[in-house]
Each structure stands twice: as structure tokens, then as C-alpha cells.
Amino acid sequence: MENIIEVHQLSYQYPDASERPALNQISFDVRAGEWLAIVGHNGSGKSTLAKAIDGLLPFTEGEVIVGGVALTADTVWQVRHQIGMIFQNPDNQFVGATVEDDVAFGLENRQVPRDQMIKQVAEALQRVGMADFAQRAPSSLSGGQKQRVALAGIVAVAPKILILDEATSMLDPQGRQAMLALVRELHETQHLTVISITHDIDEAASANRILVVDDGRLVQEDSPAAIFAQGERLIELGLDVPFTAKLATALRQRGITPPSGYQTTAEMEEWLWQSLSNTSATPTKPTHP
């Protein structure tokens, strides 16, 4: 698979911070159609990294290539048009006075003719399930609904890459699940490349690959299963400990040793069920078929 993003030796230092650089010699590639999660605790530099890729920060050293275009002051708009970004705070990225105005914002910036805009706005809102809210003002929407509108704004301009910068962290569980389901669907049906910066274990589990950033450096790069296998240490990486890992630890403390490595809930359930049935003299009967 071709690389849609290439990052070489990227470094960045905030102008007001005298201390360590926010990004320190980071290199990685993103393949087209991939879902990449970037994790790290707050202040690790992961959001800075996302902004640098979109040309929102003038990085001091290194190179970023997006869709074959090297990011410079001259090409920044070419790069940005390939990327849609959703940020953490639902309120602070809602530009339009109403839902439909907000979805249209990106299209207006691209000077899309009005007739086409009307069609695209309606389709995008349909896509995220917010068509009934087209005329509503943002103050009457929940955080989850606002983030779905932000997603519609991106669907409308159809970029190749979607960057979620902690986009679900301020939502309630329902809002978060709805948002994740939508992103998964877009990832699959539109061949959208997704980069999600997150603390959420479910969001990270959706990824094909996880990068771990700490103190401005890229410290680890692996599959979710391999990353999650670190169990209790994950909390230091800015992720929650997966439930199965917590359970495995609790079982080990009681002298029961589950299989090593990361287990999905289904795998863990199967193993426990097998072990319990095999050890039982009279196998328990399923109450449900």
C-alpha cells in the first residue's frame, strides 16, 4: 500500500517555552486507507503532532509529505484540502450560526457553487443522521450532536484523510459510541484514512496500528494487540487498561493464570468458559441457547 502521509525527523518547539521541544525528531508513515491511533498522556505532544501535519504549526525541523505534496508555506492549502480535522471542544469549532451554515463553511472556503453546496450539505447531514437539525442553532445541540455536525462538515468536502484530535473526549458514552460508529463506517465505505489521537481504549482498538508518543518522542509503534499486551503499564502511555488485562491481573493474584498476551473480551470469555466447563464434574447447562 502506498503511503499517504510521510513524516521525517519532525521537530517543533513552542515559541514561548524555553524548555524541551514539543516534538522531537519524529518519523513515521501512514498508509492510504489505514486507521492509525496516536496515544500518549496529556502534554506528550500528540496534539501538536496532529496540528503540525495539517500545517497549523510552523515546525522548525523535518519534513511532512501529504498525498505526495511536501508541506511548505506555499503548499499548505493543498495539504489542508486533503485533510479534515475534528478537535476536542465541540463548541469551539462550530463556526456557522446554524447546523447547515456550519456544514457549508468548508465548501464556501473552497468556493463551491451554491447549487452544488445545497446538495452536498443535505447529503452530508443525512449521512451523519443530523438532517432533521439543519436549521438548528448550536446552542440547542448536545456535544455529541455538535461533533456529528463537525463530521458532516468534513464529509461534505470529502478529504482523503480524517484526523480526530481527541474528538470524543468531551462526549458522554452515548455520544462517543455514536461518533465512533460513524467514523468506522466512513473509514470502511469511503476508504478514508483515519488518524485518531485518543485516550479511549475502544477508539484505539479500532486502529490498525498504534503510535505511542511520550515527551515529544515516538517511543513505540505496534498493533493494538501488541500494545494492549502491556497490561497495567498502559496507564503510563495515556491509555486505560483494557478490561481483560485488569481481569487477568486480578485472576493471577488469585492463582489463576490466563493465557499470556492481549485477549479480546470474546477470547477471554471463551477461555474462562472452557476452563470452568472442563474442571466441572457436572457441566453447567446453558440457560440461554
Binding site: 486480578a250 440457560t287 440461554h288
Partner: peptide, 25 residues
Amino acid sequence: KLAQRGVNWPQGLPLTADDLAAQLA
């Protein structure tokens, strides 16, 4: 989910990983 496969929780549905592990043990 384990209950649906026939596992009993005589001390009530466990709510935390610790609780669950204790009942399993």
C-alpha cells in the same frame, strides 16, 4: 455474558474486575 453460558453468580452479579476474579476463583 458468562451467565448466559450458564455460569452462576451466587454472590450477585460482579461489578468490578476484582469482584469477578474473586467469584471465579
